[in-house]
């Protein structure tokens, strides 16, 4: 059975703050989802609801039709991997893996030991003695080898260096291709993971901003560059996310679906059209007044 996650009018109050407000979306199918948002947007709050750590103040979260909070059946099917402080963890790497093996029915011990070698983890060392990067790598190994139907990686790479992250992405794609499951990546390293994603959910200030397949989202972004006067005349009715001017050349980033007729008109007028990367698009979409400039 493929996974279905339904978030329906969910609000979460933490103290006197609205961490999430009236959030609704559905994730259908075993895909790799990207959950993106600025610091404090509510990403971890949202994920903690999926992982049964909290209950929404209002609204419902359903994973395959069931509420996750204090629900053992759902909790067994969700694995929440996040950067936690493990500096007091006196268990060894080996012990942590054995623990995961006991609680995760889909655990693949052979795959786990292959990953341990790839990440060069010392089996007999205590977790607290590992560097932050190695601790994160151990989390990633457990997250991958558990093959849990819903696997959430929340900034799981913290402290991992670029080569280790690259191994993580490579193993994630390979293992997902062989064992499709619902994977949610919450990350700030957007340009690193952009090509891994199938769908993107962007939340901003506790609200849903975008939920689209990544190729549709990307197709909505377009940069238009040319003589300022021409750019102004031809883009006045479009949603401009960002504009920059250098001398008489102006560049605008627009967001929205353009008809092909409109596109060829822009091209014929000698304007330069180009794509906007996911990370850039994310920056412009979540930019608020007073953020700079």
């Amino acid at each position: 059975m493929t996974t279905e996650i339904k978030v329906d009018h969910v609000s979460l109050r933490l103290g006197d703050q609205n961490a999430l407000s009236d959030l609704s979306f559905q994730l259908k199918g075993d895909k790799i989802y990207g959950l993106l948002g600025r610091n404090g947007a509510g990403k971890t709050s949202l994920l903690s609801l999926l992982a049964s750590f909290r209950e929404p103040t209002e609204g419902t979260v359903l994973i395959n039709g069931e509420r996750p909070f204090e629900n053992q059946r759902v909790m067994n099917n969700v694995n929440f991997i996040y950067a936690k402080n493990q500096n007091d963890e006196s268990e060894t790497v080996k012990g942590m893996l054995e623990f995961a093996e006991r609680y995760r029915p889909e655990w693949d011990a052979e795959y786990a030991s292959k990953l341990v070698k790839r990440f060069k983890l010392p089996m007999d060392q205590k977790v607290k003695a590992l560097s932050k990067g190695k601790q994160s790598a151990l989390d990633v190994v457990i997250g991958l080898a558990s093959r849990t139907p819903v696997t959430i990686f929340d900034e799981a790479y913290l402290g991992m260096d670029a080569p280790a992250r690259s191994v993580f992405y490579e193993e994630l794609i390979k293992d997902y291709a062989e064992h499709p499951r619902c994977i949610i990546l919450s990350t700030h390293l957007i340009s690193e993971v952009a090509s891994l994603l199938e769908e993107v959910v962007i939340i901003d200030q506790g609200k849903l901003l975008v939920h689209e397949p990544v190729d549709i989202l990307m197709a909505h972004g377009l940069s238009i560059t040319g003589p300022a006067e021409t750019v102004n005349r031809l883009t006045s009715d479009l949603r401009v996310l960002k504009q920059q001017q250098l001398g008489r050349t102006k560049s605008v980033m627009i967001y929205g679906q353009l008809e092909s007729l409109r596109l060829s008109e822009l091209e014929r007028s000698g304007l330069e059209l180009g794509p906007i990367g996911l990370q850039e698009l994310f920056i412009y979409l979540t930019e608020h007044e007073g953020d700079g400039e």
Binding site: I173, Y176, E178
Partner: peptide, 18 residues
């Protein structure tokens, strides 16, 4: 296969299939 393309280029298998 699309999975081989996905692993080689580190891209989502659905994208390779497309």
């Amino acid at each position: 296969s699309t999975n081989q393309f996905a692993a080689f280029y580190k891209i989502n298998p659905a994208t390779a299939a497309k």
